[in-house]
Design a protein around this nucleic acid. Structure first.
Lengths: 251, 251
DNA sequence: AACTAACCTTGACCTAGATCAACCGATGTC
DNA sequence: GACATCGGTTGATCTAGGTCAAGGTTAGTT
């Protein structure tokens, strides 16, 4: 296992083996011997954009972290209505220890690499290495908070507020990943199609398109191409998002 | 500490001291000595219907379980729009270890009794008694699943489906609490006002009222008084709820 | 018994967002 | 070079649910 930061404070990310990214999931103290056992069962999986990784109800015998690319968790109703319930960016964790089958469709929306562990050994580690479980609890609580912010968005925000919120959420995640604090303006590349955005926001893709156009017309955002977005005034965007709290790092 | 069931399989509820209900939160092996330490810090709190227990942003120095009554977690926007993000029925756990302040308003919607532990000692127990943390992780994952089901409801269901879903959710929780399997029909007492339902469902209270009337008119439910509901055919209700999976025990 | 205050219902009307449909531009391929 | 295909935009129209307003029922108070 590779060396990691030696900062005395709790790490929230961990460099792990030859992974190009830091796993938030694995462990908060990477020098722990226990984790060598995990390391042995680690492997990678690659998926193409559009590929479904697991279908809801399928057996899922692994857990893992997103290394690169974007995946989504989506629920589908019989008549085809779809609601995204999870957006997985690099370093996010997938999979539920203690459950045999997937509860949602897991879809790679871009080309995707995941770093996986077989579920059984991972569960064993969790039992014998308390801080892995503690870290996972912490992450799950964060996800629950994000889900609840998302519920406010779905239940009470207008279409315009929803779009502004989504752009802000992705911009914040992006910024926190890149550790980049651009001076005045913020720049984001939306990693989602209009359709995926509509599934995130509980809207139709036409409404998404219209509201993005409206925000552009009103100078809240500038657009280059289809996906590249410049936010000249981030506070203005937050205002448009109707956010009460400043939201922390959602998703 | 009182004696509990001695079934060899994992318990999901635990009778705890003189608590009138079983704590789902505390522990899956109640004969554990560690818990005596917890027991010492246990205390009760009572609230009246309508009382706010903590405001979002307030310091929250305890965790606990609902003993009797109903509490809700609610998010509020500056302009007063409100979205419920958690519904706490008896045996549900409140509070987030590792966080100082509440992220949501916690409101007693009926007279309420909670069984509480001061947060600090509870956190200590979590560190030294792994299965308490494991149990809490399990519960948090269940809550996350419920939140995601709720997101589908908020984002994609019609008003009628939302109402049917809510009634089904409460009926299931009720039934599981009472362990009562009534033969043909199912009976529920809605513990929520029309307004609280509207905050749960992302609707206005007028729409809630109208859709309940419509379901009554169509024979899906029968109503006595305002809150007492008889479901002559539960499968019919589930159909109206548009549920794909049969949903397990949500909330 | 009259009065008040919650809580709930119903009606009339309006609007945000859905639906249906046409079209645009880039990319790939035969 | 013709022509799909995919992702996106925009327009015209429709409708589910919101808004505003009136009234009804029940329980508690004086």
């Amino acid at each position: 296992m590779s060396k990691t930061s030696t900062a005395p404070v709790k790490l929230t990310h961990v460099q792990c083996g030859d992974c190009p990214i830091r796993h938030r999931a694995v462990c908060a103290r990477c020098d722990d011997n226990e984790l060598n056992r995990l390391e042995e069962t680690k492997y990678y999986r690659s998926y193409e954009a559009g590929q479904t990784i697991v279908w809801s109800g399928d057996r899922m015998d692994f857990v893992g972290s997103v290394v690169s690319g974007i995946a989504t968790l989506t629920q589908t109703m019989e008549d085809g209505r779809r609601q995204m319930v999870g957006l997985l960016l690099p370093s996010d964790f997938v999979g539920r220890p203690g459950r045999e089958t997937a509860a949602y469709d897991v879809v790679a929306t871009t080309d995707l690499v995941m770093c996986c562990f077989r579920k059984r050994p991972f569960e064993d580690i969790m039992l014998t290495t308390p801080h892995v479980g503690q870290r996972l609890l912490e992450m799950t609580l964060d996800e629950l908070d994000a889900a609840r912010e998302w519920m406010l968005l779905l239940g009470r925000k207008t279409a315009r507020e929803k779009i502004a919120s989504l752009i802000a959420i992705i911009a914040r995640r992006d910024a926190s990943l890149k550790m980049a604090k651009s001076e005045g303006q913020v720049v984001v590349d939306l990693p989602l199609t209009r359709e995926a955005m509509s599934e995130y926001l509980g809207l139709t893709l036409e409404t998404v398109s219209r509201q993005i156009s409206a925000l552009r017309k009103d100078g809240v955002i500038e657009i280059e191409g289809k996906r590249h977005i410049i936010i000249p005034d981030f506070d203005r965007l937050i205002e448009e998002a109707g956010d009460d709290s400043d939201g922390g790092f959602l998703v």
